[in-house]
Computed example of a mutant assay.
Amino acid sequence: MLYREMPKNGDELSILGFGAMRLASKEDGSIDEERATKQVRYAIDHGVNYVDTAWPYHMGASEPFLGRALTDGYREKVKLATKLPSWLIEKREDMDKFLDAQLEKLNTDHIDYYLIHSLVGDLWDTLEKLGVADFLDHAKADGRIINAGFSFHGASEDFNRIVDAYDWDFCQIQYNYLDEKSQAGKAGLEYAASKGLGVIIMEPLRGGSLTKTVPEAVEEIWNEAPIKRSPAEWSLRWVWNHPEVTVVLSGMNEESHIEENLRVAEQALPNSLTEEELQLIKRVENKYRELMRVECTGCQYCMPCPAGVNIPLCFELYNNLYFADDPDAVRFMYAARLGGALGTGGGEFASQCVQCGQCLEKCPQHIDIPTVLDSVVEELEGSDLEQRVAMAKEMFKQV
């Protein structure tokens, strides 16, 4: 296992982190506790020392599971990360309430790496007014948390100001070879690192969409490489090639995936890919973009929409429909993220478009936004949209 140093505290963290959002599960969706425990402990025994979870993962069952899985001395072998469910916070006192509950669930007296979960600009502004900085300061002072960070899912222009708004130790961003310009992106990665923050990477495989069903045209490009690697290995190596990256999280739930990830994490040094290999990955990226239904970069120039449509998110999920092999899961996430299940937004669906055309003048990619939104409605909404929204709100409610 290779390790990289967390800049502000000197922790030597495994470059591969165990993400506990997609644990091995039974047919009914509940965690297969025996199998998942073996997987977590096997990864730790082979060098993984960073484990990440959050309040809503597995309908609230992930944290208590880890509280049990990390007994028998395993808690002492890892840095444990979890997250404040920011969308559930209504007042300053809620922050302490959730943290204390998480400490109990996780069967620990401290969280090594504590994140404010899933920040976007507006949500950060609300939390800041509610006293989140004071909460973090006090929680660090009394030892309940050791390092403070945030995970980010917002627009690029909000990322830097959140980095600058508090003395963070680290941050967590989505990053892969298709997301260099999405959300925080490469610019955010480099900015955070320039400020001395450790950077944890989530979704290095874009939720598995870069590996589960690889289009034939993409497979043909991978096969040209002199050194044969799986799409997962190429994707992980691309992220680890960035020296600014500290840890890459993987939601590992198959033994073969764990073995492969551990093997790659023994070799993936920063700046180790050749120029020819980087060009090959660039060709794969370009091929995926050819397959995309809409070439949206998430620049947000089209926002705000007068009718309240979250245009970039609609387009992101529309593309995901053609990258993933589970269209029902994408439709569920469409309902959850645009229907307000995470406590922000709500009622931001493509079907709210009134064809005003204001976005057409603003889009630097010259996308026919209203026409594409009609396609989003046709493929991602449907007659059961309200039912999916209700299910998502039930899943993400206080548990």
Rank of each mutant, 00 (worst) to 15 (best):
V78G: 08
H153D: 03
Q267M: 14
V48G: 03
N310Y: 14
T344G: 11
P204A: 09
L70N: 06
P231T: 05
K228Q: 15
A69W: 01
V389Q: 13
F332E: 15
G345M: 11
I89W: 01
R22M: 06
A329G: 08
G382C: 06
A336R: 02
W238S: 09
I200Q: 10
N160H: 15
D52G: 01
E255F: 14
A350C: 00
W238L: 08
T37R: 11
L291W: 00
F135H: 10
M21Q: 03
G47I: 09
E220M: 01
A43D: 02
G188P: 05
E5T: 15
L136F: 07
N319V: 08
M292V: 01
K77H: 08
K287V: 01
E34Q: 14
G345E: 12
F170I: 13
R75M: 09
A268G: 07
L13D: 10
S250W: 07
S86E: 07
F332S: 15
T82D: 15
A81V: 03
A61Y: 01
A217V: 10
M202T: 00
E180S: 13
Y50R: 10
Y3Q: 11
E266F: 04
E254N: 12
D100V: 11
K105A: 13
A139R: 10
L317M: 12
C299P: 06
K77Q: 14
I111V: 08
E285R: 15
A335D: 08
L80G: 08
L249Q: 02
Y114Q: 03
W238N: 09
A184F: 02
R331Y: 07
A225Y: 06
L16A: 05
L269W: 13
Y74S: 10
V218Y: 01
E255N: 15
A69I: 00
V51W: 04
R41K: 08
M95R: 02
K83W: 04
A20I: 02
D11F: 14
A133M: 11
C305P: 01
W124L: 03
V48L: 02
S182H: 15
V245S: 09
N286V: 05
Y42L: 15
E260V: 07
A24E: 12
N253W: 05
T344D: 14
K287P: 00
I200T: 10
W222P: 01
R35M: 09
P306I: 01
L70V: 00
V199G: 06
F159M: 08
K97G: 12
I311Y: 06
Y175R: 10
R229F: 04
C353E: 05
D109R: 13
A265F: 05
L13C: 13
R263T: 05
C314R: 01
L2W: 02
T371Y: 05
G198I: 06
M391G: 11
Y50G: 09
E348S: 12
M395E: 13
D52H: 00
A390T: 11
D134S: 12
A193P: 03
R206D: 02
P215S: 06
E260Y: 07
A165Y: 08
G154P: 07
E254W: 02
Y318K: 10
T108W: 03
K140F: 08
T211P: 00
K362V: 00
P270F: 04
P370R: 02
Q398W: 07
P7W: 13
L291C: 04
W87Y: 15
K393W: 04
Y114L: 08
T53C: 08
D137V: 12
L205P: 04
D112E: 06
G10H: 04
E157R: 14
